[in-house]
Amino acid sequence: MSLDDLNDDVQESYADVGDELSVALDRETRNELALLESALEPEATDELVRRAIHMLFQTTVESGKLDFQLRSGYDVTYDEYLSGMTYDEMTGADQYPSMDDERRYQF
């Protein structure tokens, strides 16, 4: 997979999520959400879910887990995704022809 594949998958997922998202909660998650809502008193429960997603995203980026998953699945990093080009494209390493070991030393 590649950077283009990742961009396509992100756009597809973004479209699938839409504006509304219904999530089934298990008993433990519902209890934790209720406790957080009582303690933090947000204007709406949706605000807690948004905060949770932001925290999970930030933690995943900072720990390197996102880069690991992206490298495993798409052979890119988060920085490459943000810039829209791979490191090879940034440094020009993909512009040189490949070495042909059999013909390398022939004159």
Results as ranks from 00 to 15, higher is better:
residue 70 L to K: 04
residue 87 Y to A: 09
residue 35 L to K: 09
residue 31 N to F: 08
residue 31 N to L: 12
residue 20 E to H: 06
residue 14 Y to N: 15
residue 10 V to T: 11
residue 80 E to L: 04
residue 92 G to R: 07
residue 26 D to I: 03
residue 17 V to T: 11
residue 45 T to C: 04
residue 60 T to F: 05
residue 68 F to L: 11
residue 74 Y to S: 00
residue 18 G to W: 03
residue 69 Q to Y: 12
residue 14 Y to F: 15
residue 67 D to Q: 02
residue 50 R to C: 10
residue 42 P to K: 00
residue 10 V to A: 10
residue 53 I to W: 10
residue 40 L to C: 05
residue 55 M to Y: 14
residue 12 E to N: 07
residue 39 A to Q: 13
residue 91 T to L: 12
residue 42 P to W: 04
residue 53 I to L: 09
residue 84 G to F: 12
residue 49 V to L: 08
residue 80 E to F: 05
residue 57 F to W: 13
residue 39 A to G: 04
residue 50 R to K: 13
residue 37 E to V: 02
residue 69 Q to C: 12
residue 69 Q to P: 09
residue 30 R to D: 07
residue 36 L to M: 11
residue 32 E to T: 08
residue 93 A to Q: 09
residue 59 T to A: 13
residue 87 Y to F: 13
residue 24 A to M: 09
residue 21 L to C: 02
residue 86 T to V: 01
residue 58 Q to K: 07
residue 72 S to Q: 15
residue 37 E to N: 05
residue 63 S to A: 04
residue 55 M to T: 15
residue 62 E to N: 04
residue 18 G to H: 00
residue 60 T to H: 02
residue 42 P to T: 02
residue 54 H to E: 13
residue 47 E to M: 00
residue 44 A to V: 05
residue 31 N to R: 14
residue 88 D to R: 10
residue 35 L to A: 14
residue 81 Y to H: 12
residue 67 D to L: 04
residue 23 V to N: 01
residue 44 A to D: 09
residue 25 L to P: 04
residue 58 Q to S: 14
residue 54 H to W: 14
residue 56 L to S: 13
residue 52 A to N: 03
residue 25 L to F: 03
residue 38 S to P: 07
residue 54 H to A: 15
residue 40 L to N: 01
residue 48 L to V: 03
residue 28 E to A: 02
residue 54 H to C: 14
residue 18 G to V: 05
residue 31 N to W: 04
residue 38 S to C: 04
residue 80 E to M: 07
residue 38 S to A: 13
residue 51 R to P: 00
residue 77 T to F: 05
residue 31 N to C: 06
residue 66 L to R: 01
residue 55 M to L: 15
residue 73 G to R: 15
residue 93 A to K: 12
residue 58 Q to V: 05
residue 91 T to K: 11
residue 10 V to H: 11
residue 47 E to A: 01
residue 48 L to T: 02
residue 69 Q to S: 12
residue 15 A to E: 10
residue 14 Y to H: 15
residue 37 E to Y: 02
residue 55 M to I: 11
residue 58 Q to P: 00
residue 20 E to M: 10
residue 51 R to V: 08
residue 55 M to V: 12
residue 60 T to R: 03
residue 42 P to Y: 03
residue 21 L to T: 01
residue 74 Y to E: 02
residue 60 T to L: 05
residue 71 R to T: 10
residue 68 F to W: 07
residue 72 S to T: 11
residue 27 R to A: 08
residue 46 D to S: 14
residue 57 F to T: 14
residue 47 E to G: 02
residue 62 E to R: 05
residue 85 M to F: 13
residue 55 M to W: 14
residue 47 E to K: 01
residue 79 D to I: 12
residue 47 E to Q: 01
residue 73 G to K: 14
residue 81 Y to C: 04
residue 19 D to Y: 09
residue 22 S to T: 07
residue 24 A to T: 12
residue 54 H to S: 15
residue 87 Y to R: 10
residue 59 T to R: 13
residue 90 M to Q: 14
residue 88 D to L: 07
residue 75 D to S: 12
residue 77 T to P: 06
residue 32 E to I: 06
residue 65 K to N: 10
residue 33 L to R: 05
residue 37 E to Q: 01
residue 87 Y to S: 10
